[in-house]
């Protein structure tokens, strides 16, 4: 790679995409976008204890169980991915 390449927009984007999970790109599908948003949400719920408490009251579960459930849902937050259309 040449030195000048480091500053062009594509390689900068690639760098961002590698560094920050969830950085979008031009061909991002609706599903990928939603999955990313959902995972961000669950991570935010797990990080904010009062919100976990709020959910725990609503569902009458313990906070520990809520946290576990949210972490589990991060695997497939929006259900199965759609079938890929062949390019």
């Amino acid at each position: 790679m040449q030195a000048s390449d480091r500053f062009n927009i594509n390689s900068q984007l690639e760098h961002l995409q590698a560094k920050y999970v969830g950085t979008g790109h031009a061909d991002l599908s609706r599903f990928e976008w939603a999955v990313n948003i959902q995972r961000d949400c669950y991570a935010s719920y797990v990080g904010h204890y009062p919100i976990l408490g709020y959910f725990a009251i609503a569902e009458n579960e313990s906070i520990g169980r809520e946290r576990y459930n949210f972490m589990q849902k991060m695997l497939l937050p929006c259900g199965l991915p759609p079938e890929r259309e062949d390019d």
Binding site: E32, V35, M74, L75, L76, L80, P81, P82, E83, R84
Partner: peptide, 13 residues
């Protein structure tokens, strides 16, 4: 989760 995100059959998940 990388494979589960790609596999639409649900097997990987």
């Amino acid at each position: 989760y990388s494979e589960a995100d790609q596999d639409s059959t649900g097997q990987a998940a």
